[in-house]
Design a protein around this nucleic acid. Structure first.
Lengths: 216, 216, 216, 216
DNA sequence: TATGAATGAGCCTTCATTCAT
DNA sequence: CATGAATGAAGGCTCATTCAT
C-alpha cells in the first residue's frame, strides 16, 4: 500500500510541524505572556515561516487555546487516577487524600510547567475576547468535568468521615487556589532569583491543609 | 510669602493631576491588563491629553510601576497593624493569628481590588521590560520589609507555641500564595459569572489553615 | 482673540493635512484601483506618515468613502443648476435639454476626473463590504436625490412635450449609463494610447441621444 | 497507434482540467473582482489543488487574461453574424441595424455575463501588471478586428444612407460605451437590489440611438 | 501530472512616544 | 505646563507562488 504509506507520511509530517509550533508557542507564551508573544518569534523558534503557523491555526488566539485542551485533559487524567484510588479505598485517612492532591498538582507541574502557566494566564483573562463558541464550550465542559471529579473525591471522603465536613465546592476552590497561588509565587521568584522552590512550598501548603482537614 | 503659596498651589494641582492619572491607570490596567491598556484610554479617563501623561511619568512602565508603591505601602501599614496586635499579646491563639491574616488580606482586597491585581500582574511578569535600578530597589526593599514583618509575626507566634513550629519563610509564602490564588480564582469567576465569592473562599481557606496550624 | 486664532490655525492645519491625504488618496485609488492602492503609497504621496492617515480616517474604506461624498455633492450642485434652467424655461427644445446634460457630465469630468472614477469603482462594488450604516445611508440618500433631480428634469420636459414621452427612470439610467460607459472607455484608451477623446465621444453620444429624443 | 491515442487522451484530460479552472476562475473573478479573488478559492471551486493551477497558467494574471480570448472571439463571432446580415442587405433600415446591435449585445450578455465583466474589469485596468508581449498582441489584434467589423457595418450603412453620416470610429465607441455603461449600471443595481433590468435599459438606450441615427 | 504544505513579502492597523504650538 | 497631531516601528494576517513527494 504505497499510497497509504505516502499519505501517512505526509500526515505525520504535518502533525510534526503542528507539534513543533505548539511546543514553541508554549515556550514563548510562557515567557512573554500572551500579549507580548509574537507570531514571528513563535515561528522562528519552531523553525517554520510566519505564514505556516496559519496553516495549522486560524489565529493567535486559536493557537493559544489549542494549548489548553491537552493540559485540561492531562489534568483530568491525573485527577481521575486520584479519584479511583479514593473510591477503591486506597486512601484511608484525610491526610492521604490531601497528599493525593498534592501529588496530583506536583505531577501536573512537573509534567508541563509552561502548560500550567497557559491555563493560569487564560484564567487571568487578558485575552478571551475572540474565541469560537465551539472551542469555548469544549473548554468549559472539560473544566467542569475536572471540577466534578474533585468534588466527588471530597464528597466520598466526607461520607467516610475522614475529612472535616464543609462546603465542597468551596473546598475544591481552596485547593485549586492554593495550587495556582503557589505556581504564581514560585514562578515570580524563579524569574527574580533563578531558584524554584515549588515543591517545598506546595508541600508545606498541603501539609497544613491536611492537618486542617483531618478528623482525628 | 506669595511665592511659596503660588508654588504650593501649582504643586498641589500637579499632584492632583498625577493622582487622577494614576487612578485612571489603575482602572484601565486592571480591566485590560498591562499590554492591552493604552495610554490613550488612560488619558481620556483621567481627563488629560495623551501628551500630558509624559509630563508626570516617563514611560508606560513607569506609570505602571508608580502604582505599585502605594499598594505595597498599604500592605505594610496593614500588616504592621497585625504585627503590633500580636506583639502586644492581643492574639492569644494560633486561630486568632491566622484570623488576623485573613482580615488583613480581606482588608487589602476591599481597600483596593484593582491594586491587588496590579501587584499580581507584576508578579506574573508580563511586562517589566525596563525598570530603573532605583525603582527596582525601592520596590524590592519594601517588599522585603513586608516579608520581614510577616516573618516576625510567625516567629513570635511560634515562640509562644501557639502555632505549629515549621519553616517560617515557607509559611509566609504559603499565606501569600493562598491569598493571590484566591484573588485570581475569584476574579476569573467574576469575569465569567459576574459573581464574586472572594470573602467566602478566602475565609474557607484560612479556616483550614488556622486549624492546620493550631497547636491545641 | 489670540486663543481663537491659535485654535483656528491648528484646525486649519489639520484640515490641510486631511485634504492632502484625500488628494493623494484620490490619485492613488484612481491609478491602482481600491484593492491595489496601499495606505503606504497614499501616505507617501501626501507627505505624511502611514500612521497619520488613521488620525483622519478610521480605515482604508473610510478614506475611500470620504472621497465619494464631495463628488456626489458636486454632482448634485451641477444637476440642480440644470434643473433650474429647465424649470425657468431657459431650455426650450429637447435638444437644449440633452445638451444641458452633456454639459453637466462634461463639467463633472473636467472638475474631477479621478473623482468620477471613484464613484464608478464604488458602483462596481469590489469593496463595499465594511461600511458604517451611517455612511452608507448618507451615500444612498444623496444618490437618490440626484436621481430624483434628473427625473424631475425629464418629467418637466415631457410635460412640455419637448422630448419623447417614455419611461422616466429608464431614461435617467440610459443617460447615466452612457456617461459612465464613455468615461470607462476613454479612460481605458487613455491608459493604452495616452490620448483622451472623452469630450468628442461624449458629444457624439449625446448628439445622437438628442436627436433620438427630440419631438420635432 | 496506441501512443497517439494515449497522448490524445492525456491531452483531453488536460484540456478538461484547464476548462474547469477557467470556468471557476470566471465565476470567482466576476464575484469578487480581480484583486479579491484568490487562487485558493478558484482551485477549490474547480476541484483541483492550488498548485495544479500553475501547471496550466503561469500566474494569476495569466489565468485572468486567458479568460479574455474566448470572450473576444465570441464577440467576434456574434458581430460577424451581424455584419453578414447587413452586407447581404437583410437590414433595410437604420433602425434594423441598431436593433441588430442591440440583439448582439444582448446575446453577449446572455451568453456569458461573467465574461463581460471580465472584459470590463480588464478595460478598467485594475490589474495588468505584467502581460507577456505575445498575449498582449494577441488580445490587441482580436480587439482591433472586432472594432473593424463594427466599423465596416456602419460604413456600409452610411453608404446606403440608412443611418446618419458621422464619424465612424466615434460611433463604434458610442455603441460600445453604451453597452458597457448599461452593464455596469445594472450590475450595480443587481448587487444592491437583487433585480436586473439589463434588457429593458439596454433596449431603451438602443431605441433612442436608433431614432437618433435614422435618416427618415 | 497532481498535490498541498511551506514560504515570505507585503498589507492594514495600532500605539507608545515626541514635539511644535 | 498642557495639548494633540504626527511619527514609525511592530504586529497579526493573507495569499501568490514554489517544490518535495
Amino acid at each position: 500500500m504505497p499510497m497509504r504509506a505516502a499519505k501517512s507520511l505526509a500526515h505525520e509530517k504535518r502533525d510534526l510541524t503542528q507539534k513543533a509550533i505548539q511546543k514553541a508557542a508554549k515556550k514563548v507564551f510562557f515567557q512573554k505572556g500572551y500579549a507580548n508573544a509574537t507570531i514571528a518569534e513563535i515561528a522562528k523558534l519552531a523553525g517554520v515561516a510566519k505564514g505556516s503557523i496559519y496553516l495549522h491555526f486560524q489565529t493567535k488566539d486559536d493557537l493559544y487555546l489549542s494549548l489548553m485542551l491537552p493540559i485540561l485533559k492531562e489534568i483530568k487524567r491525573s485527577i481521575s487516577g486520584l479519584k479511583e484510588s479514593v473510591e477503591q479505598g486506597r486512601c484511608k485517612t484525610g491526610k492521604e487524600i490531601v497528599e493525593g492532591f498534592y501529588e496530583h498538582y506536583q505531577r501536573l507541574y512537573r509534567f508541563d510547567p509552561d502548560g500550567i502557566r497557559i491555563v493560569q494566564a487564560f484564567q487571568l483573562g487578558d485575552m478571551i475576547t475572540a474565541m469560537s463558541k465551539q472551542k469555548q464550550e469544549e473548554l468549559t465542559m472539560i473544566a467542569r468535568e475536572n471540577f466534578q471529579i474533585s468534588r466527588s473525591i471530597f464528597s466520598c471522603a466526607m461520607e467516610r468521615k475522614i475529612i472535616t465536613r464543609m462546603d465542597i465546592p468551596q473546598l475544591v476552590d481552596v485547593f485549586w487556589a492554593t495550587f495556582i497561588g503557589v505556581v504564581q509565587l514560585e514562578e515570580s521568584k524563579l524569574r527574580l532569583t533563578g531558584k524554584n522552590h515549588f515543591d517545598d512550598t506546595l508541600r508545606s501548603a498541603f501539609g497544613i491543609l491536611a492537618k486542617g482537614l483531618s478528623t482525628d
